[in-house]
């Protein structure tokens, strides 16, 4: 059975856009065959830092994978020391900490079912020379990590690009 519903919007509506600055982005790069070991290590991270804001993982090629962890606070020194120790013992893994960075996230109705949503956001940032360091889009959520001090400008741009209904 097919049902057609007509829904028109001049600008894509979102439920809201959140911007947070002063975050920390940890990038771990390791061979795919070390996934189990790195998984066990990520469990141990909870001793130092309680929560992440965003995680993405993918492989640029068959051998090498990238895990991006965005923390809502600057990682304490013991966590950085622990990561450095693990990476040193591996040789084939690398660890990069970029801080501060800004993060923006937005959620919209049926984002996972509609084409063009990521294009709208990415194009708006590209036109204004704002670099996207990391992005993760799944379900109805879109997360964008930008270099430090670009969050406020990005928020303004996204607020002009998408429509946030302000009344019911």
């Amino acid at each position: 059975m097919e049902t057609i519903a007509v829904y028109k919007e001049a600008r894509v509506k979102v439920y809201g856009i959140t911007e947070k600055d002063g975050r920390a982005l940890v990038t771990l790069s390791f061979p795919a065959n070390q996934m189990e070991q790195w998984g066990q290590r990520v469990v141990l991270l909870e001793e130092h830092i309680k929560r992440f804001e965003l995680v993405t993982y993918h492989a640029a090629d068959k051998e090498r994978t990238e895990l991006h962890l965005l923390f809502d606070q600057i990682p304490p020194a013991p966590l950085r020391d622990t990561l450095e120790k693990w990476v040193k013992s591996d040789q084939q893994s690398t660890f990069q900490l970029r801080q501060p960075v800004d993060i923006l996230y937005l959620h919209g109705p049926h984002f996972q079912d509609r084409f063009g949503i990521a294009d709208i956001a990415f194009a708006a940032l590209k036109q204004n020379n704002i670099e996207i360091l990391v992005s993760g889009c799944a379900g109805t959520s879109m997360y964008l990590v930008t270099p430090a001090h670009q969050g406020a400008t990005t928020l303004k741009l996204l607020t002009e690009t998408f429509l946030i209904p302000t009344s019911v």
Partner: peptide
């Protein structure tokens, strides 16, 4: 992303990174 949108192709999942050399 623009070409995919032009062809009305939905992307239910995306992850992108530009913090390493690749």
């Amino acid at each position: 992303l623009h070409l995919l949108a032009e062809k009305s192709i939905n992307i239910p999942f995306l992850c992108h990174s530009a913090v390493t050399s690749i």
